[in-house]
Design a binder for these strands. Sequence first.
DNA 1: TCCTGGCACTCATGGCTCGCGAGTGCCAGA
DNA 2: TCTGGCACTCGCGAGCCATGAGTGCCAGGA
Lengths: 338, 338
Amino acid sequence: MLSERRLKVLRAIVQDYVGTEEPVGSKALTERHNLGVSPATVRNDMAALEDEGFIAQPHTSAGRIPTDKGYRLFVDKLAGVKPMTAPERRAIQNFLEGAVDLDDVVARTVRLLAQLTRQVAVVQYPSLTRSTVRHVELLSLAPARLMLVLITDTGRVEQRMVDCPAPFGEASLADLRARLNSRVAGRRFSDVPSLVEDLAEPFEAEDRGTVSTVLSTLLETLVEENEERLMIGGTANLTRFGHDFPLVIRPVLEALEEQVVLLKLLGEAKDPGVTVRIGHENAHEGLNSTSVVSVGYGSGGEAVAKLGVVGPTRMDYPGTMGAVRAVARYVGQILAES
Amino acid sequence: MLSERRLKVLRAIVQDYVGTEEPVGSKALTERHNLGVSPATVRNDMAALEDEGFIAQPHTSAGRIPTDKGYRLFVDKLAGVKPMTAPERRAIQNFLEGAVDLDDVVARTVRLLAQLTRQVAVVQYPSLTRSTVRHVELLSLAPARLMLVLITDTGRVEQRMVDCPAPFGEASLADLRARLNSRVAGRRFSDVPSLVEDLAEPFEAEDRGTVSTVLSTLLETLVEENEERLMIGGTANLTRFGHDFPLVIRPVLEALEEQVVLLKLLGEAKDPGVTVRIGHENAHEGLNSTSVVSVGYGSGGEAVAKLGVVGPTRMDYPGTMGAVRAVARYVGQILAES
DNA sequence: TCCTGGCACTCATGGCTCGCGAGTGCCAGA
DNA sequence: TCTGGCACTCGCGAGCCATGAGTGCCAGGA
């Protein structure tokens, strides 16, 4: 087991390294943090920490830098979440409050997160499955062509064309619209399938085909759109990554373009609080030298989507976690209001 | 005036430099292109070309590289657009054909362009002002709350909430919906304002307020959404930029995140054909070391939006122009079909 | 008038050595 | 268990030099 002081040393190393971006040696440590012991003692502790795999030397006769394992311990045991200051909180609120629609909320959130953390921000659009239906609309565009519009409580709108097997009268259309809405309005998306199962039954035989086409399109929309959208921003912050540029930045940019990868990344975080995945803990290889800080957000108490940032493993974890948590909280509020 | 041979020399320099990424010298030139003259002659020509500002030396005793002015001449006079091969054309078509909706078309286009050109791709969503109305729908969400849905011929959908000054009956709603559609369906967005001017007149006094609110929301939508959306991709290709990485790449990434900048960039290209803006020809400073190749695309004969790529000034202009033109053509086809 | 071969010159690049200094590990003594 | 001391390692940057690609210029030839 690591002694109290060794943990302190580890914390000091992480803090210094995050600040200076340079390997930190025993002498510098004792000077900048009053550990109350001499450099020699710290050296012994560092040797022990290295044996346990928490820190490493880039090369002999250089200072130490934290390993992924070291950051992990730091995040879990040695550092809390740094709360935002009151002015920062006010700034966040102001920035988000001007948003006019869902797209705008997401766009603003991305910019805000990127600015606050000076890292790459990723925001997932509120998910369909976990939200509820506000309204379903059917429009007749041509005799045998309908448009299905789905409006969610988070303000998201999805539309689909429906080609009907047979012409569909205005009366039937109004009927279907009314029945559909009385069934699903206000219900959760995940409940919709069972709720519309028998909806075709009351209709005339000639209309049944169209009704079931509409219903299956609706269900498809729920499923398909589950391949959820997201928005990223702040990629310019990648340039602050380090000196050995292209090698590191390239795979990250590639990973960021793969929505699937990112969604999986955010999705993996099951924790109700802020989740941190450090370096090799990320399944995707291109992100092995990055850390991902993510958290769920939602209009009510429940999370309907995730947001987070991607940055170098050498990041200010407490500050980043604080920013991510605060932004998520305020976005939730904004969504609840609208 | 530049002699025929000097133009040939310039062309050879551009081609070699684009290929090798290294300053090209007189000896290498005579070896790789059969110019029929000796290196010494080429040297004289190069000196002349340098005097005129078409090429430059990074440092004395290195080869020459083209200047922006040199690339300009190359693009304008010395090189055509390289047409895509038949298999390439087929691949483009296949890739785009699977798209299910407008978002998907745009997303696929971005990926395709980025892959083909190995550069950063930018695709603007079909613009509202230049498209036509397919349908306007009004939904009653609450007694005094309506939703306005606007569907364009390019498949784009915009929705807006409308808070009514007074409750609005179903009958009035149906009436308004019918009148609205008979006026604007199939018309160009730019014509809409004059078409709906007097639409409130036939309504009862109590409904007038709501009708004009709806109309002004509609008009706002047309204007506001003129701040058009776009999608970018292939940013990982920026890593192939050069050796002096961070300094160049950072401002580019920043510029790419400013939608306004990009829209202006694409918008500036007035040419009906492929437009090329080279290096300092781009107004935005961050893009001074990049070239932008863009072209309009549209469902009919007319361009409703632009697409293009951003890459280093040292790019394969004929190939890139060919790819951009071909993709624009096929996207236009896809849009026309849907 | 234009092209060519020759020649002297420039200068970026890469390999090399070397001294500096930060940082370490280890050990003996408190 | 901590501390001061000491010898050792080794990355880094400076300085140096040889190399060679590339140039500009010139005088002679077509």
